[in-house]
Design a binder for these strands. Structure first.
Length: 994
RNA sequence: GCCCGGAUGGCGGAAUCGGCAGACGCGACCGACUCAAAAUCGGUUGCCGCGAGGCGUGUGGGUUCGAGUCCCACUCCGGGCACCA
């Protein structure tokens, strides 16, 4: 590139042309920043020593400091590079980490790259360039952009998930999970070998899972199948989210509620496929319970709670009429309404449907009151056909509806009678069994008991198909009134179901009566009856499903799994790790048709020499076929925070002593904690993806003794987003935002008016501002300061380049207060500051230290502005800045704008970096003013101010207030009914209203 | 529909416990410097009013000597979940 940048701003031109030669401008800032980046690198300034091992050099010097682990969410190295919105969190953690170093902590702060994933692979498909090349280029560019920000990361600890040395340990963790099972008795994961021992010793009975056969009756393959069914990582054929456009299946968490892929918004179809699953459901209760001890925002906790979806209820078994021994099991949160169950509904794909469907529609004595099956039960699906045909038709109808269509529809209830009946166990009444798509196979047991009087969905279905509606919970009078009915109104004349608590009614048999019982007691009573009668038992159900863990992709971690002649998976031994990705040239998914009939073929299937191997896994050398799927992108990001601790360890994923030092159960301030990372900063978009998966893996590692804390992230902070204005022309097309001019309250591009919009920064809105632009025009310190000054970290706010000059001027004034702009010489003085300035200094120190600790960086900066403005006044008067003010000011600025602070620190005569200098401390004596100004109110309105000593009591303050001329005039001739005098705060005279 | 979060000048935002609303910055206006402009420096800037003063934190009520802050009802905006039994 030989030509000069055409976009170089006029401001930068002007400031470099005829400004004083030692003014702090972009050019000077860039020079200073480059110098300190090199210095920090050369001096290993940000190397945080481990207590032991290869990274422990220098630990003795920091051994008495408290540890602090600060972490940013793992970034994906995008080919587009960073825009100014990306580093917001990184700057915040860096400011916090720098402050905490000055406050006496040994701070671990590192940055790595979540580098597997779709974009590099899709780029490879388009260009033929290997994803590794693309990925490494992107990482290099991102490293450059982040280095320019002056982030104090320990560069030795930077890892990428694509490093073979890293994914070797991702595979190792997979093996740990694969080789474990969840023992409900101990409520933890245990080695799979323990389970085998339990079966062999007879301690655990195999027969319930094998059709009544004992472990000793099983052959080798059957035993493996049984054991495999217990593993925390297992293969299952289940309806999965197949996304043809992405050529892969997706986890539930990766599918939006509109039934589209979170990445790319492509249609997703349910189809049965054999896939790897992770048994995260075994941890549902612990994942939920342990949220209570985490310092996370309530909203994120709530999102995880919703996703886990715990509900308390009961399982109830309904015997199927004419099928001896066959029960339909349902889950209900309202077992107290069991007497009101007038029909049942199965999900259309429920496996029992085919077994219960009779040859003909029932009639005569099977139906208590009707002579033949009512037409309404058969509806349009069952008219003129057999039950089997009706079921088939309905299934076809339901399957044809995509999730999107279901969403869009008005949720009119549809369904069809199966022709079969079940007994309501409370009263032995035969109730009809339907299939309907409002019952989902994936939740509970895929079957429900329908209580139309007390469930709105069942109510609507009952109305639609003309089914009986029986009241078993008496609603409160207020509800009856509001719905225009009385206590005597039959439930089928209610305008809607009553789903709330009430008092039991119509619920009595020989053994139990719920009549008159309030709902909570009724639940207890019926649960007891269910247990005694054997029809059911209380239980807890979760919405959370197991995690679908395989992807039909190339650019991901290969599984350390092969298959032998039985087709069952065999774990590779640790000694065979890593399983490296084979080199291939064709990354294209084989079939990309955007419909639901295509089958995925993993790209690894084409690596013939790799996929088929001969190995000796203890059975002698024999052929095996490798697992051809790869792991999802979430795998690598599930544990990277552990690898930062000990990135070079070849013997373990992390040394236990190192792990305990950085992670173990105390917070930075010494109080007990459940999780190891002291501060984790990132976007809210990972609320139920990464944060749930990582907690799950961490708990498995905890159960197996590989980590010492039950939770990975003690404190989570969700930063807001930087949004930006965008502009559309009259066609509604986005135009380049940086070229739009504002004048007379309107916006114009090339003289044509354009419309201002607001949204996420990105290519599609053409409103990207890159950090490189800002470095060029102002320098990195200005960018850092601006991003921290824009507002509170947890809120989203608009980027506004025009506002940047404010913080840039601050740095310029700070510089000018210390360095002569014309000569470059220092103009500081050892003379003491005046009392007012000194007091302001100490107030500022107190405020800034407090704000830094609570990450209120915007107000910390405001305080620094105020002090610097005062210093400017002093310099104006005296021609020199008192060192007494300058030194602490520079130290306070250091976490926020480290380059200029280091430079000033050096010019002030210090040899080393200020990174580990103690943060200034406020003198408490100077925080108290000699006189304080107190507002004086009359009837709540401020009418004057008086100066009083800070320790003046109420009487003295009131006396002073009465002495104020203006106040005295207002009080003259009026009756003071009450005086509120709050010492140090205010005085309020309450006078008779005239 | 359910669950969270939010609403303060022209703009971004500030205001530990219920105690001077609008800190700090942008913008705007005035002035200094300059032949001039930019940059820089100083001042003014919630609204109405010449002023005294009045009004003012999404809306309507309430508690209180006193409410941006607490309570009740609502409006709008953002996010999450959603036929979850």
């Amino acid at each position: 590139m030989t030509e000069t940048r055409p976009t170089r701003s006029a401001r930068a031109e002007a400031s470099t042309s005829d400004a004083p030669s030692h003014r702090y401008d972009a050019a000077l800032a860039n020079a200073i920043e480059a110098k300190w980046h090199d210095r920090w690198d050369a001096e290993h300034t940000f190397w945080a020593p481990n207590p032991t091992g290869p990274l422990s050099e220098g630990f003795d010097a920091v051994a008495d400091r408290r540890k602090l682990y600060v972490l940013d969410m793992f970034p994906y190295p995008s080919g587009a590079g960073l825009h100014v919105g990306h580093p917001l969190g990184y700057i915040a953690t860096d400011v916090f980490a720098r402050f905490q170093r000055m406050a006496g902590h040994n701070v671990l702060h590192a940055m790595g790259y979540d580098a597997f994933g779709l974009p590099a692979e899709q780029y490879a498909v388009q260009t033929g360039q290997h994803p590794r090349v693309t990925t490494e280029n992107n990482i290099a560019n991102m490293r450059r952009q982040l280095r320019a920000l002056g982030l104090g990361h320990d560069s030795r600890r930077s890892i990428a998930t694509t490093d073979v040395d890293y994914y070797r340990w991702t595979q190792w963790i997979f093996l740990q999970i694969f080789n474990s099972w969840y023992d409900p008795a101990q409520d933890k994961a245990r080695p799979i070998g323990d389970l085998v021992l339990q079966f062999e010793s007879g301690e655990r009975d195999a027969s319930p899972h094998t059709g009544g056969r004992d472990w000793s009756d099983l052959d080798h393959v059957e035993r493996r199948e049984l054991i495999d069914s217990y593993r925390l990582a297992y293969i299952a054929e289940a309806p999965v989210n197949w996304c043809p456009a992405l050529g892969t299946v997706l986890a539930n968490e990766e599918v939006t509620s509109e039934g589209r892929s979170e990445r790319g918004n492509h249609p997703v179809y349910k189809r049965p496929l054999k896939q790897w699953m992770m048994r995260i459901t075994a941890y549902a209760e612990r994942l939920l319970r342990d949220l209570d001890v985490l310092d996370w925002s309530e909203s994120i906790k709530q999102m995880q709670r919703n996703w886990i979806g715990r509900s308390v209820g009961a399982r109830v078994r309904f015997p199927v009429v004419n099928h001896e021994g066959l029960d339909i099991e349902v889950f209900t949160t309202r077992p107290d309404t069991l007497f009101g169950a007038t029909y049942m509904v199965l999900a259309p794909e429920h496996p029992l449907v085919d077994r219960i469907v009779p040859v003909d529609w029932p009639g005569g004595e099977q139906l208590d009151e009707w002579l033949e099956t009512p037409a309404s039960w058969r509806g349009i699906f069952g008219a003129d056909v057999t039950p089997a045909e009706a079921v088939a038709r309905y299934r076809e109808f339901a399957a044809a509806k995509s999730d999107v269509e279901r969403q869009a529809e008005t949720r009119e209830k549809t369904g069809v009678f199966t022709g079969a009946f079940a007994f309501n166990p409370t009263n032995d009444q035969a109730i009809p069994i339907f299939i309907a798509d409002y019952v989902l196979m994936g939740y509970g047991t895929g079957a429900i008991m329908a209580v139309p009087a007390h469930d709105q969905r069942d109510f609507e279905f009952a109305k639609e198909l003309d089914l009986p509606i029986v009241e078993v919970v008496r609603p409160p009078d207020t509800w009856l009134e509001e719905h225009g009915v009385t206590a005597g109104t039959p439930a089928d004349q209610w305008p809607e179901a009553y789903a709330g608590d009430g008092v039991g009614t119509n619920s009595t048999n020989d053994q139990v009566s719920l009549d008159g019982l309030p709902t909570p007691e009724a639940k207890q009573a019926i649960n007891e009856w269910l247990r005694n009668s054997g029809f059911g038992e209380p239980t807890v159900n979760y919405k959370l499903r197991d995690w679908l863990f395989s992807r039909q992709r190339y650019w991901g971690e290969p599984f350390p799994i092969v298959y032998d002649e039985t087709g069952l998976p065999v774990a590779l031994p640790e000694s065979m790790l890593p399983v490296e990705l084979p080199e291939i040239t064709d990354f294209e998914p084989r079939i990309v048709a955007d419909d639901e009939d295509t089958l995925p073929e993993p790209p690894l299937a084409r690596a013939d020499g790799w996929a088929h191997v001969e190995l000796d896994l203890g059975d002698g050398r024999k052929p095996y076929v490798r697992e051809l799927n790869t792991m999802p992108q979430w795998a690598g990001s599930c544990w990277y925070y552990l690898r930062y601790l000990d990135p070079t360890n070849d013997d373990a994923l992390v040394d236990p002593d190192v792990e305990r030092y950085w992670m173990h159960g105390t917070r930075g301030d010494g109080t007990p904690a459940a999780g190891g990372v002291d501060l984790y900063v990132g976007g809210v978009e990972h609320a139920v993806l990464h944060l749930l998966y990582a907690r799950f893996w961490h708990k498995v590692l905890y159960d197996l003794g590989h980590v010492s804390t039950p939770e990975p992230f003690q404190r989570l902070f969700n930063q807001g987003y930087i949004q930006a204005f965008a502009f559309t022309d009259e066609r509604g097309i986005y135009v380049e935002a940086s070229e739009v001019e504002e004048r007379d309250g309107g916006y114009f591009l090339d003289g044509e008016p354009v419309t201002r919009q607001y949204g996420k920064m990105g290519k599609s809105l053409r409103n990207v501002v890159t950090p490189d632009d800002i470095y060029r025009d102002y320098g990195a310190d200005t960018l850092r300061l601006y991003e921290m000054f824009m507002g509170p970290l947890d809120q989203s706010r608009p980027w506004n380049t025009a506002d940047i000059v404010g913080v840039h001027r601050f740095l310029q004034r700070l510089w000018r207060n210390v360095v002569d702009e014309e000569t470059g010489a220092l103009h500081v003085s050892p003379e003491t500051a005046d009392d007012e300035t000194r007091r302001l200094l100490h107030r500022t120190i107190a405020a800034v230290a407090d704000d830094m600790a609570t990450m209120s960086f915007n107000t910390a900066i405001a305080s620094l502005f105020t002090l610097n403005n005062q210093l400017s006044r002093v310099v104006g008067e005296r021609g020199a800045a008192p060192l007494e003010i300058v030194v602490p000011l520079v130290l306070m600025v250091a976490p926020l704008a480290p380059h200029i602070a280091e430079e000033l620190w050096e010019r002030l005569g210090h040899a080393g970096s200020l990174v580990y200098e103690p943060f200034p401390e406020a003198d408490p004596v100077l925080l108290v003013d000699e006189l304080v100004e107190i507002p004086v109110q009359v009837n709540g309105k401020v009418r004057g101010h008086v100066m009083v000593p800070p320790d003046a009591d109420a009487a003295a303050t009131e006396a002073a207030a009465r002495g104020d001329e203006h106040v005295a005039a207002l009080l003259a001739g009026k009756t003071v009914r009450k005086v509120v005098a709050v010492p140090g705060r205010l005085v309020n005279f309450v006078v008779q209203q005239q």
